[in-house]
Design a protein around this nucleic acid. Structure first.
Lengths: 145, 145
DNA sequence: TAAATAAAAGACTTTTAAGTCTTTTATTTA
DNA sequence: TAAATAAAAGACTTAAAAGTCTTTTATTTA
């Protein structure tokens, strides 16, 4: 039980890795990414397809091809990844799974959970894709199990 | 994508409902609970078995039997339900799914997510099973979709 | 322009979570 | 003590998430 799906966890790690490599001046392939973020290669391929379609990462086929992130995307927030993969419900859903639950008609846990949701939302919007590039390059942070 | 599993959502709602009914002086059966919290009856039965084994709810078989909560359990925290159903990982797991991630060797999101996790943990420990009984009885809160 | 490279696409399998059904056991009350 | 009631137990099915495999398409470079 994490906060995000496994797919989303891989997606976040992959994007961080691609951002780092782009920052270092390289494109990177599925094999390289998979081995550096510890993910199953073919599954990662699926995820990257989705991220490419959502415009979060860019790709070119062929020799010397691979994935990278264009300048405009560097500052995109983490929430874009989560939304592209897991959908936007995490930002709005009721902790107890009640569909009627809202500000006007709150469930017992609504007010407490509102703060938790707000904090996650705030964090995902505040954190950018390229935010950890330097620490990753310096080896101060790591993305593989 | 909620924070808890579906099973856990049903569990929390069921326990709140049983607590309310106990407070009103009644035992309550699977049928009654299911219709009041909008859950599939046989699935709820499974969940209640787990909760009974964990000692979170009590049950008696036979006519006039059903589920109730004993005095000692009224003050148990919500975290007991979540732990019994989803396990304790939500209190400790890494947001990016990295197994090494810890205070000593943090992943990029570790420090931000620590606060979120702490807040959920705090909330689940602070909130008791019987906390909403009165509002539920008065009809100010509701548990069914 | 042919060969090599690398992602895209889509069909497929496995695993886990969610949900159902049937039988058994315990308890109460007439 | 028999009939009715209600939970416990366990086998089973379905749906969704996670993961794999094969073929196609695009791009580069020799």
């Amino acid at each position: 039980m994490g906060v995000f799906s496994k797919t989303c966890e891989y997606a976040i790690r992959a994007v961080f890795y691609i951002s780092q490599r782009t920052h270092e001046g390289y494109k990177t392939g599925i094999k390289e990414i998979a081995s550096n973020i510890d993910s199953p290669e073919p599954f990662l391929a699926k995820i990257l397809q989705k991220l490419a379609k959502a415009g979060i990462v860019q790709s070119v086929k062929g020799p010397n091809g691979g994935f990278y992130i264009d300048i405009a995307s560097f500052d995109r927030p983490l929430s874009d990844i989560v939304e592209a993969i897991d959908g936007a419900e995490i930002f709005t859903g009721c902790a107890m799974g009640l569909s009627f639950c809202s500000e006007v008609n709150p469930c017992p846990l609504h007010n407490d959970f509102k703060e938790v949701r707000n904090r996650i939302t705030e964090m995902l919007h505040r954190t950018s894709i390229s935010q950890f590039d330097e620490e990753l390059i310096r080896g101060q942070l790591s993305l593989n199990k």
